[in-house]
Write a protein that binds this DNA or RNA. Structure first.
Lengths: 261, 261
DNA sequence: ATGGTATCTTAGGTCTGACCATAAACCATA
DNA sequence: TATGGTTTATGGTCAGACCTAAGATACCAT
């Protein structure tokens, strides 16, 4: 064991020491740059110094500098352009990298489509309530546009799903809560991928969907948050039930090309 | 403009072509490896070939191979160990990388603490309902443990917040929905960081919190999902209101060291 | 002038090969 | 047999060269 043993000189002193962390040079550089981005010292579009310039400033090799830039690139904090006038340009974090993490989690852990639908049932009614309170007029036009696209009889499955996604994300945007919007974007994208092969979308489904959307949109338009929440709850729950019918519960796992920044 | 011009040989054919994508070699390699991980061909703990071995197999330079590994490392799909018997080892995606994305989004976009609380109000009552339906007995012991830690009068603020976080995440875990759990983990972590300086946590707050948690835990224990949801809704809403009182609405922005690795 | 073409220039992308640092495995010694 | 040094496999870093992309510029033909 590790009991103190006065006979052993080495066990006399009491202090213990956790594993010492030795950060990699590239991570240190990346962290440094990341702070300057996140604190706002560097803003959207600002160019980082050229690689060879960073080499001189940071006194590191180019390989190290490049690995640091690659880290920031994966985290979607910079976008790197080649050629003259190229370089690393600052990006503000968007929901995109979050959506990537979410879809990797979903794929890697084999999360079931029902779980996505459940999560959606948690988020969307609340989104609708907030949207009814906080919406601007332009949000309504977007919702109407998306809903019109859903009804479009010429549209194929992909277009239907895209328009459907647009409407749902539109509600989240109207809630004026960026975090909620981020969650919904990531989630919707994953649901899109999981529903892609669901061939249960026929003319009737579209009609029902459009009508439900219209009712919810109207509640949002009227700033009636209770109605918006209630209708959204019914709508999402109904959609989930329809999906569950279309396939046995445990069969559907979400697969998606994922990521790709 | 670009109108078709029969006189010009180059504009005869009709096909157009979007911007040609020239993926970087490191990204191609990373994508290849990522697929093998996400499809389950490589499982947790499996070692990737050594860097110099990948160099031979992929016919790329070591710098390129290393950049690919760095990408996967940032995405938390591999963990790289140095020294003999080191190398890149496969990890299943966890909520950690998601939490990182979320906290970067929050910091980078200056998302307000109220927005986090709102999101929490959307997620947690639903978590509680699900937990009441799906809980296992061991979930209850974890909830009880965390709640006992909250009541502990010796604990400092950090320990209180940690125990509080543990309890809330515990509810999410009990819901048996991994995605919901992931969202809640990411969110809680960010809330933790945002509440760190909130000095409004006194003995009374702890007592109230503990009691609310106990009531909710009991509902979950009794598999009473309606009560669990209702009580959680009240609890979270109350907490948010208390926070809003402690600071003016727009003043609190979430700052956090974020990320890591 | 106008518009296309060739060339220059600046940036990232990739390669080669060497050497350093770390930590597990091995071995020698008390 | 336990301690402590040695070996060695593996990642981490460095240096410098060359390739490739793409904006900038000059030049030429119409």
């Amino acid at each position: 064991m590790e009991a103190a043993d006065p006979a052993n000189p080495r066990s006399q002193s009491e202090f213990r020491l956790g594993p010492v962390e030795v950060p990699k040079a590239s991570e240190v550089l990346a962290g440094e740059l990341r702070e300057r981005i996140l604190t706002g010292e560097l803003v959207e579009g600002d160019p980082l110094p050229a690689e060879r310039e960073l080499v001189k400033q940071a006194q590191m090799s180019r390989a190290t500098v490049r690995e640091a830039l690659r880290i920031l690139e994966v985290q979607n904090l910079v976008r790197v352009k080649t050629g003259r006038a190229g370089g690393a340009f600052v990006q503000r974090p968007t929901t995109k990298s979050m959506a990537n993490s979410v879809s990797m989690l979903i794929r890697g852990r084999r999360i079931k489509l029902v779980d996505l639908m459940e999560t959606r049932e948690a988020l969307e009614p609340f989104c609708a309530e907030l949207a009814a309170r906080n919406r601007a007029d332009e949000d309504l036009t977007e919702l109407d546009r998306a809903n019109a696209a859903i009804a479009e009889p010429e549209a194929d499955l992909a277009q239907f799903l895209q328009a459907n996604l647009d409407w749902h994300v539109g509600v989240a945007v109207a809630s004026r809560n960026e975090l909620l919007t981020g969650f919904m974007s990531a989630l919707s994208q994953a649901i899109y991928a999981g529903t892609e092969n669901a061939a249960f979308v026929d003319t009737e489904v579209r009609a029902v969907t459009t009508q439900a959307h219209r009712a919810i949109t109207n509640a949002i338009r009227d700033r009636d948050s209770r109605a918006a929440g209630r209708r959204m709850r019914r709508h999402v729950h109904g959609y989930a039930a329809a999906l569950a019918l279309a396939d046995e519960r445990d069969a559907i796992v979400v697969g998606q090309p994922a990521v790709g920044e």
